[in-house]
Simulated assay, not measured.
Amino acid sequence: MQSLGPVRGHARGRRSQEALLARGIAAPRDASRRLPALSGTRALIGLKPRSLRLGRTGRDPVRGKWLLLSALFLASAVVYGAIIGGQTGVLFNYAVAGVEHVAVAVGFGVKRVSVEGQQNATDSAITAALGAGPQTLMLAFDTDAAKARLEAVPWIRHARVMRLLPSTLQVMIEEREPYAVWQNKGKTFVVDDQGVVLAPALPQAYPDLPLVVGEGASEHAAALYATLQSYDQLKQKMLAALRVGDRRWTLKLRTGTEIMLPDDNIEVALQSLTELQQEHGVLERDWSVIDLRLLDRITVRTREAAIVPPDDIAPSDVPTVATGTTPKGKT
């Protein structure tokens, strides 16, 4: 078989077309103008799933701008609606709550509370006053307000609250010291030196604390016992101090004897009692009342004596330690 060269083969094909055209038959187009057929086994599409990139808006800048404008328009509409409807506070609170929730979720919530100086204040009282829990955001916790709430607890005199990031609150407190047991109107409390009621209490629970009785006794107890500090013998014999009319004291001894002190100048009266004790041992005798209210004399009554007039009934010309005067006709 003889093969045709490219020139001869091309000429023969051209003559064949001319012959067909002469007979009115459409000749096929030149085969050489057809698209070349692909030879071999090359792959037409070679995409793999991991090479797909979804949402590539960079190739379509117009679409990306429209999405951004749509988001801004929606946000503006929400804000405008909140302003018109007077709900800006609600919207702000929702936003703040969302931020706090995220911060707590990543570890900025109160997880631990460290307390120093606690002796009598209860855990429940401190926890309630502190007002912090696992959902409390550390960064937003108001330490000054917590300090004020803690110092409102009766046992706590001073408090300090500090944040130790990320999740610890440190509380340092200074407690009030029990000073006396106060009995008034059938109820008994333990109080500090300023008369602040710390808690209900039975006298038996605080055997080493002095017992004061009556209206105003809690506020004036510290001043009385500061004066009695130099009179140990008298203090050891005392059972209680009774506040009379919220103006003066009567000391009740364990023997049942009552020592009636003046309104003022208690130191002068106690000094006179000390001298009388040294000379006559009046505190060792079975007296019902030792009256120190008068300036120039000490009156004692036995248990069989007549009923003593009420405390606030006294002759106007009888001097007392408080007035510092002497009776008429006396020097």
Rank of each mutant, 00 (worst) to 15 (best):
G13Y: 14
E18P: 03
A27T: 11
P28K: 11
P28Q: 15
R29F: 05
A31G: 05
S32L: 10
R33A: 11
R34D: 08
L38P: 07
G46W: 02
K48R: 08
K48H: 10
R50V: 00
S51Y: 08
G55M: 09
T57D: 11
L68H: 06
L74W: 08
A75W: 12
V78S: 04
V78T: 09
V79P: 00
V79K: 00
L91I: 06
Y94I: 14
V99L: 14
E100A: 15
V106D: 01
G109F: 03
E116P: 00
G117S: 09
T122I: 03
G133L: 03
P134D: 08
M138V: 11
F141L: 11
T143H: 07
A145M: 04
V153M: 11
P154F: 14
H158L: 02
V161H: 08
L164Q: 11
P166M: 01
S167V: 02
E175L: 05
E175F: 04
E175Y: 10
T188M: 08
D193N: 12
V196P: 01
V197A: 10
L198F: 11
A199V: 01
P203C: 14
Q204V: 12
D208H: 14
L209E: 10
V212Q: 02
V213K: 05
E215W: 13
A221M: 04
A222C: 09
Y225H: 06
A226P: 00
A226S: 10
S230F: 07
L234S: 05
K237N: 07
R247A: 07
T250Q: 06
L261F: 01
I266H: 09
T274G: 09
D286Y: 03
D286R: 03
V300A: 13
R301K: 04
A305M: 04
V308M: 13
D311Y: 11
A314V: 10
D317T: 09
T326G: 08
P327F: 14
K328N: 12
G329S: 02
